[in-house]
Every structure is written in structure tokens, then in C-alpha cells.
Write a protein that binds this DNA or RNA. Structure first.
Lengths: 337, 337
DNA sequence: GTACGAACGTAAAACGTTTTATGCAATGCT
DNA sequence: AGCATTGCATAAAACGTTTTACGTTCGTAC
């Protein structure tokens, strides 16, 4: 309420016996001031604990020292904040450390296209966007405003755009498929999400390619990300009806947990009759019985690369090349035969 | 770079054929305008997609629509953004959903007392501070500036301060101790962190009280939070030298994982000779062999309560009462006899 | 008819910076 | 002596809002 605005540039100027301009110049290493006054002003400013007001400054310059993070999962998941550390939660943590290490603040921002856009949203210096969709409206708004951004996951259908870092989805998919092959699976069903992001698209593409190579009939299922465990359990019915595959590869951890639960409930033995794997490790996958084999993604490496790129963009420098990180496969009981 | 500032209030005024003041008043339901002009201005503004610039607005009003989150673990852990700080990562996620649901953005802010304070830090509407210390300097700076704040974990030594939500640390401690008692443990060592926050202090107090009640000699160890798994492993040596207790209760998950690893490395059988428990579940605890029994905290409930309180404070309304949430005990192999 | 409120609008100050454009000595050069 | 140059410092404009204080115009009561 009675917010005591800190000491202003005017206060410093008065105390140091100089003009406001002089203070600004002294503190920002601009203008033509004698070394002596510069030093004097700095001393006074320090004594008074002066810190420039970010809002006033931002109004003139156009850099705020803060970047936004649009976290798709927050919108998709709503209130759901599961026990355990999934990709996105780890990603947030990693982005935060990386940003702070660079003297930037990180602001969590909801979908930029929905009703009440948070006031500061368009005043931030740049954005990190997770898993952009095809023709992503969030990305569109940022471009419209000329705000620099980087993406975690390549924006689909934009081969020209290079400001991204990503998991190596194609490599991940092959890792899983070859593990299943090794465990004896001949028919593998893929359960992907419905968001048209490169995560879903590249996995699907690799899966279909692999089916062609190995002359297997592809069995592709789509399940909305938000359907969660329940959706997975329901899907198990369709899997059974369509004829049980040797293995089910679910891109999201919650779907995998649900599918496995649904299969077990229908009397299907896992992993004996059908194996289950997920492309994104999660608490649900780990806590299921049997524990679900999973790819462990590496959002930490990606976040560092992303902030490097973003900082370059903000400074108007040429940016680094995109970067792929490799996932590790965690075999667990659900694929152990 | 060439940031295209969106459409300004001036543009709207010109287009609607009215003064700037009229636009401001129309859009904020102030002043004395006829219903007709008000409506007209609103229409024009909508058409043009006008949105007030948050910086300019914040300069006059004092509310930004954004709150800060000071995450102690970020500072303590530095670049380390591991699976293993579960509570805090879940807490961030939960705060973010809660904030967004209320139309607030959430800004992650590092320690407010260190060198480069992020520019926006003191322009935010309010703060959530995790685990404040005794005489916490972060809290001091906020009070100095008159910025409202709430804390996750009670600020130690401030019985008057009621704007907090917390895990019920005393109940948690008793839950663990009675479980160990039930599993046959007679001598229990407590390994706490060194931060003087209520998490450490209340657990210690409860532990000591329990020792007195049960006429057991207390065995108290302090290990810096940042010592992590390595620190825990090193501590195992001291535990052995001092005479093996029946059980070790580590407040942090990484310490527990380390202690267990150190014990096993020294040939101590867990749980047969000595049991291990942690007061804060984490990836490390879950992934250890044997898996470490843990308290599963509930940051989600707390975050909701905190945002309620914070919103009241910002609005200048009286705030809700503090709130305690209960942890669940997750018995695992490390205490199974 | 003059005075007085309403009812409706607007001009201008303010918020705290940065930046642009000037001012004024003192110095250097013909 | 006269004129450009340099070195130092400042006044004032600008950023995009909100808010305060001030006009109008009109109808109504005296």
C-alpha cells in the first residue's frame, strides 16, 4: 500500500549538487563528465543506496532485464501439479538458474493469446516458448510485436527459423524402438498427443519411417495431452479391441501410466503380453507397478543454449546455431522380459 | 530490437476524436463521461487492439499485476538444477498455476540482497519468500520498501507475523519418529541443515522434545544444505565413528541419499543395521537402493493459501489466517525390517 | 437576467528515467 | 583580437500512462 518509493535520481542530484542529467550520465557511463564529478556522483549514489527504477527506465530504453517463459504445460495441465519432477518442472528450474546467472529475471507467463494477458507481458526483453505448435499464435504475437524469442523444441514447418534448442526427438524414438525390437516386440503401437508440435510430429514421423523400414503395419493413436492418466486407461480398451500389440510406446508419461493401468485392469499381463514405454519420464511412470521404462530428457542443457541464443538476439548480435540434446533410456520392469 | 511499441492511448484518442484523458477514464471507469462516449471509446480501443503499457501505467499507479518468488533453493544450489529439489520445483509450478489463475504473473527472483538485484525486483506488487531465516535480510529489504509479502514456512522468531503458510513440521517430525519407533529404532540421529529457518528449527525442537519424552540421548548433526549427496556420504563416517544409531533422520533428501550411500560403502547394512529416512522426498531418495522412506510434502495446498493472503495484502484487505498442511509418510525399503 | 450546479470534457502536471540539444567557459589557432 | 574547438555541465523533451484541476455548456431556480 504505502509503497515507499526508494530514493530517486532527483534526490541523488540534489544531494550531489549536480543536475539530474549528470547523475544519469555518471551512472551509465555516457555523456561528457569529468572523472572527478563522475566519481563524486557515484559515491553519493552508493551512499544513498540509489537504484534506478526499472519502470521509468524501461519506458525510455527498451530493455527490462527480464525474459518471459511461456510454459505450455501450465495451460494444458491447469491445476494439476503432480508429485515428482517432470520435464517442464525441471525446465523451469533450469531456465531460472540460467537466467539469474546472467542477471536476468525470469517471468512465468501464461498463454499470450488468451483473455487477460498479464500486463508486463509485452514489456519483457525476450521470450522462451516451449513446444511451439504449427502456426503457433503465441509465436505470431511475439513476431508481430518484434519481441525476440527462442523455442524449446523446433517450431514445426519453419525450416528457416534457427533460434531453438531441442531434445533429439528422432534419435529418442529410434532408441526406444530399437530397445523394444531387442526385447522381442514385433508390433509396436504409438500413442502420441494431439498438440501439433515437433515433439509429436517428429516422433510420429520417425515411427512411421521405422515401420516402413521394418515392414510393419503402423498402429498410430492420438490422445489429447490433457486426457492424462484417465485418457490412457480408456485408450487401453481400444488397444485390446484392435488386437493387442507387443508393445505400446506412449509419448507422455501420464498416458503411459494410464494405458498400463487400463491393460492390467483388462487382464493383460505387462510386460509378458504387452510392454509399455514412455518418451518422457514422469513420476507416474516411475511409480507405476510395474515401473514404466522411459526416456529421461535433458532440459538442463537445452536451457543453457536457449539463454545464450536469446541474449544474443536481445543484444542484436548474431545468434548461435540450434542445439540438440540426447535423451537417456531408462529400462524398467515394464519392458523387462 | 526494433521493438514496435503497440498502439498507444494517444492513437486511440486521435481515432476516437477525444482527449487522452477521456480514453483513460473510459477504460478505467473513472471520471465523468457520458455512457455514449464511454461506449464509443471502448469500441475504438477494442478495434485497434489497444492495451495499456504496463510500464507507463506502473509508473503512475503502483500495481503491476505481477508478484515475485524468492526461491531459496536456487541460490543454495547454484547451477545445480537436478532432479532432487522436488519440493521447490513443485512449489514453483504450483505458485505459477495459482498466480496465473488469478491473473497475476510470477517472476522468479534471486536473493534480493546480493550484488545485481534484478531491475524489476522492487516494482513488483508483492512477494512470496520461501523458508525465511532468522532475521532474514530479504524480508528486511521488503519491509523497508513497504512491499507486501508472504512466506512459505513460518519466519522464525516472529510470533506476531501471520502471513505465512507452511508444512506442519512438528507433526511431520512426530510422524517419522513414531514410524521409526514402531520399526524398532531406539536411538535415532537427526541430520538437519544449517540454514536458520523454521523447517530446521522446528524439526530439531520436536526431535529434542521427543528424545526427552522417551528418555533417549539426542544425537544431532548439522550439515550445510549445499553439501548435498557428497556431504551426506562424508557424514556417514562420523555416524559410524560415534557409534551406529538404529536410524538416521535426514531433513533433506540429498543428505539422506548421501548418508545411506556412505553407510553402505562402509559395510553398514540398510535397513537391517541402520534405517534411513528423509523429511523431504526427492528424486535422490526415490532412486536410491534401497529406496529411502520419505515424507511427501504438500506445496500445492500451501501455494494456494499463500496467494490468497498475498492478494488480500496487495488490495489492502485483512488477510486470512496462516495455514498448516500435513505431509504423508511414504514408507520404503530403507525402513522396512 | 443573473447565479448556481450538474453534466461532460480537456489541459496539464506528474511518475522517474534517458537522451537530445544547448550553453558557457576556457583553450588553441590564425 | 577574433574565431573555432574542446571540455564540462545542464535544460528540456520524450517515453505512455493516470490524475488533478480546470473549463465549458446547459438547465434550472432565484
Amino acid at each position: 500500500m504505502a509503497r515507499t518509493r526508494g530514493v530517486t535520481i532527483k534526490d541523488v542530484a540534489r544531494r550531489a549538487g549536480v543536475s539530474i542529467t549528470a547523475v544519469s550520465h555518471a551512472l551509465n557511463d555516457k555523456g561528457t563528465l569529468s572523472a572527478a564529478t563522475r566519481a563524486h556522483i557515484r559515491t553519493v549514489a552508493d551512499e544513498m543506496g540509489y537504484e534506478a527504477d526499472a519502470l521509468a527506465r524501461g519506458l525510455r530504453r527498451s530493455t527490462m532485464g527480464a525474459v518471459g517463459l511461456v510454459l505450455r504445460s501450465l495451460d494444458a495441465l491447469g491445476d494439476y501439479a503432480p508429485a515428482g519432477v517432470d520435464v517442464f518442472e525441471r525446465f523451469v528450474g533450469a531456465c531460472a538458474s540460467q537466467a539469474l546467472a546472467r542477471g536476468l529475471s525470469l517471468m512465468l507467463v501464461p498463454d499470450l493469446t488468451r483473455a487477460p494477458v498479464p500486463p508486463l507481458a509485452f514489456s519483457l526483453d525476450g521470450y522462451i516458448v516451449t513446444n511451439p505448435h504449427v502456426d503457433d499464435p503465441v509465436v505470431a504475437r511475439l513476431e508481430e510485436r518484434g519481441i525476440p524469442y527462442v523455442t524449446y523444441g523446433r517450431p514445426p514447418g519453419r525450416p528457416d527459423f534457427t533460434h531453438w534448442a531441442s531434445e533429439d526427438d528422432r534419435a529418442s524414438a529410434r532408441l526406444v524402438l530399437s530397445h523394444l525390437e531387442g526385447a522381442g516386440a514385433r508390433s509396436v503401437a504409438l500413442v502420441r498427443g494431439t498438440d501439433p508440435n515437433s515433439w509429436n510430429l517428429e516422433h510420429q514421423e520417425t515411427y512411421l519411417g521405422w515401420c516402413t523400414e521394418h515392414r510393419r503395419a503402423p498402429r498410430l493413436y492420438e490422445l489429447p495431452e490433457r486426457a492424462g492418466v484417465e485418457g490412457g486407461a480408456a485408450l487401453a480398451g481400444r488397444l485390446v479391441d484392435d488386437g493387442l500389440p507387443d508393445a505400446v510406446f506412449c509419448l507422455t508419461g501420464r498416458h503411459a501410466a494410464g494405458v498400463q493401468r487400463g491393460l492390467l485392469a483388462r487382464g493383460v499381463r505387462v510386460p509378458e503380453e504387452t510392454m509399455v514405454v514412455t518418451g518422457s519420464d514422469s513420476e507416474h511412470a516411475r511409480n507405476s507397478r510395474p515401473a514404466v521404462s522411459a526416456l529421461e530428457l535433458n532440459p538442463v542443457d537445452s536451457s543453457a543454449a536457449l539463454l545464450d541464443i536469446l541474449q544474443s538476439l536481445i543484444a542484436g548480435r548474431p545468434a548461435d546455431a540450434p542445439r540438440l540434446t540426447q535423451a537417456r533410456f531408462r529400462p524398467r520392469a515394464s519392458t523387462r522380459r
